[in-house]
Write a protein that binds this DNA or RNA. Structure first.
Lengths: 170, 170
DNA sequence: ATGATTTTTTGATCTATGTCAAAGGTTATG
DNA sequence: CATAACCTTTGACATAGATCAAAAAATCAT
């Protein structure tokens, strides 16, 4: 299995601000971040809304587009110079079909992701902008300071101005 | 595999208002709803906050508690008289270990669930109470009228009063 | 470095939604 | 079938956070 895995992997570098995935294409690549940071976002009324941020040690793709091989709303870009290794969806399918332990790995890591998302849904309701920001800092504990304020604001669903004021008092 | 599956399954009935799962226990059972409706909720400042609703054809449990076998914040109750068939976590583990196709089924249905959750996170930001309610009606198209107003309000993170007014104008 | 972008902060309003309170409806129970 | 328990609606008022505008600070490119 190791050999099959190693053969499927390629390396890529992205400059800060460079596009990693475009919403007009089906996502066929999943990136494992070695260094740097990627942002998954979409456009709403012409504005970029950050969906989430991925840093070292995380797999990044446009989830529904990658798993279902169809179009979705998400763009991905690099918010720092970033080094990744990539796997193509067809190689991953091959691995799933030939190595059942991969299937288990995927199921378990999806379970973890699901837990995080559920927690986030929870944190978004019945909470003030302050509480949302506090939760964000906790969820992204050691990387939150690497993300520009405007992106954090759109992630939280509040305006830049409000977030700026929140940071000022804290 | 069919035999193994059938032997693991038991049937249960819940009356409207009856508790299905208590947050003080680890969740060891997953319920497949044959008829009726269950609600997953948690307590915030003594109030019940609905996390989501499950109807016919869906598996219901306390997600992190069931998959990680640890405590979590969620309670589950029946909001209608409900008939379910249940599987115990240890039986499911057995099936996963002995029937790789089960593993795949679980991974794929998790992927679907993940997509839904992501969409929900999206819908919670930058939307007015009106938009949130409209999205809810869409997401729960043919079952939303079966859910009491107060529960819908807490699901959306708005007050009952606001939801009542939204419904009035529409 | 130095001017040009871009990002963040600050200030002055405005509005959607929350809170509190009470009255109507509806459903369950002895 | 009556009374209690619960659920929904309506009203008056308060407030967190949005919007618009512009200054200040930080970052980028020549």
């Amino acid at each position: 299995m190791e050999a099959a895995l190693i053969n499927s992997i390629t390396f890529r570098d992205f400059k800060k601000g460079e596009m990693v995935h475009h919403a007009e294409r089906v996502c066929t690549t999943s990136c494992f971040i070695l260094q740097g940071m990627l942002r998954v976002y979409y456009l709403k009324d012409g504005r970029e809304v950050s969906e989430y941020f991925c840093a070292e040690g995380e797999w990044t793709n446009s989830p529904r587009s990658f798993t279902q091989q169809q179009l979705d709303i998400y763009y991905i870009d690099a918010i720092e110079d970033t080094k990744v290794c990539c796997i193509q969806v067809q190689d991953l399918v091959y691995l799933f079909n030939n190595f059942p332990e991969m299937e288990r790995y995927a199921r378990l890591s999806m379970g973890t992701l699901l837990g995080h998302l559920l927690e986030r849904v929870t944190s978004q309701r019945f909470t003030t902008a302050h509480e949302k920001y506090a939760h964000f800092c906790q969820a992204y504990h050691n990387i939150h300071h690497r993300i520009p304020l405007g992106m954090v604001a759109s992630y939280l669903g509040i305006t830049q101005e409000t977030l700026s004021r929140i940071r000022a008092v804290k």
